[in-house]
């Protein structure tokens, strides 16, 4: 029997083509990239165990666990608030790692329930001078710089689908940078929606990137 090869396929593998899309008259107003090599673990505190979970998260990821809609970046990755007493730990994937829970299980044993969502979500990076205008077409969340500062996060719905949206440090040119986490099965459809929303500003689809 032939040896089996396990190629990972992103839900955007077939719709995602790097390069210029939409209006091309001026510099692209929106830049979009898919981020492929990440692990995402949902950490859900058990009853009465939030403070223990926060402590364990701090110990493991080196940053304070957020207690309100925020994305806290540390060396190991991003701790994303995903609901009351819930965290999503977003970390870079090492190689072909397929069991991200293993590294966390002991640390959270008895105090949290863990669920691997690394394949349940598709992660996008949206930036550029017109990123906010484009997101205003798909998101009802107020993304004004003052209202939604760097580090702010939202569990929200985009095109009737649950998603997580957060803001990271601005790009070098001062334009805002957003990350968007969407359900894998919806990613293909949502990608089309995002491209349509950004088309008038010109889009630069960037090659898939790491976290």
């Amino acid at each position: 029997m032939a040896e089996f090869v396990w190629h990972a396929v992103s839900p955007l593998q077939h719709s995602f083509t790097p390069g210029r899309m939409g209006e091309t008259a001026d510099a692209a107003g929106v830049r979009m990239a898919e981020i492929r090599n990440f692990n995402l673990v949902q950490i859900f505190a058990r009853r009465g165990q939030w403070s223990a979970v926060a402590k364990a998260a701090k110990a493991h990821f080196g940053v304070e666990a957020p207690t309100r809609p925020q994305a806290v970046s540390g060396k190991a990755g991003v701790l994303l608030w995903s609901g009351p007493d819930q965290l999503s730990a977003l970390t870079a994937r090492r190689g072909d790692e397929i069991r991200p829970l293993d590294a966390l299980r002991d640390r959270f044993a008895g105090i949290a329930s863990l669920s691997d969502q690394s394949d349940g979500r598709c992660l996008l990076r949206i930036s550029g001078a017109r990123a906010r205008d484009m997101l205003a077409k798909v998101s009802s969340v107020d993304l004004d710089a003052a209202v939604f500062p760097v580090g702010a996060a939202a569990a929200t719905a985009i095109d009737h689908t649950a998603a997580n949206l957060w803001r990271e440090a601005d790009a070098a040119d001062g334009s805002p940078v957003f990350k968007l986490l969407v359900f894998s099965s919806f990613a293909d459809s949502l990608w089309d929606t995002l491209v349509d929303a950004a088309a008038e500003y010109g889009i630069e689809v960037e090659s898939p990137a790491g976290l």
Binding site: A45, G48, Q49, W50, V53, P84, D85
Partner: peptide, 11 residues
């Protein structure tokens, strides 16, 4: 208000 059992508070 949140329902009694949202989050991880012991109830």
């Amino acid at each position: 208000k949140a329902a009694a059992g949202t989050g991880a508070a012991a109830v």
